[in-house]
Amino acid sequence: MEPIKSFTKGEELRSFLFLSVVMAPVLAVMIVGGYGFMVWMFQLLAGPPGS
């Protein structure tokens, strides 16, 4: 079994910045865009609200 690798402060900071500056906004855009696409597709098939 290999010993557990401990991360340095620099690696931890880099990982945190990547997750908070890159991944969080990308995930937010993907989730909102996916929801908007689902609503658009539903309205394309079912018609606009109130019709």
Rank of each mutant, 00 (worst) to 15 (best):
F18W: 07
F16G: 03
M41S: 14
V32W: 11
V39Y: 11
L44Q: 14
L27K: 05
P49N: 13
F16C: 11
V26K: 01
F16S: 08
P49E: 08
G47M: 01
V39K: 13
V29R: 00
G10V: 10
G36P: 01
F18N: 02
V22F: 04
F18V: 02
Q43L: 14
Q43N: 14
V29A: 06
G34Q: 02
P49M: 12
A24P: 01
G50Y: 05
S51E: 10
E2A: 13
S6C: 11
A46S: 07
V21S: 01
P48G: 12
V26T: 09
T8Y: 10
L44G: 15
S20C: 11
M38R: 15
F42V: 14
K5Y: 09
I31W: 04
R14Y: 05
I31V: 06
F7T: 15
G50M: 03
V21E: 00
F18K: 04
L27R: 04
V32R: 03
F7W: 14
M1R: 15
W40N: 11
S15K: 09
G34H: 02
V26L: 01
P49C: 06
A24R: 08
P3Q: 15
L27Y: 09
G47K: 01
K5W: 07
F37V: 11
I31H: 04
S15Y: 09
Y35I: 11
V26F: 04
I31E: 03
A24V: 12
V39G: 08
I4T: 14
V21M: 06
Y35C: 12
L13S: 04
V29T: 07
F16L: 13
F37P: 03
L45F: 12
G36F: 01
F37G: 07
F42M: 15
Q43W: 08
S51L: 09
P3W: 13
I4P: 11
P25D: 02
E11M: 08
M1G: 13
G36L: 06
P25E: 01
S6Q: 15
E12D: 10
M30V: 07
G47Y: 00
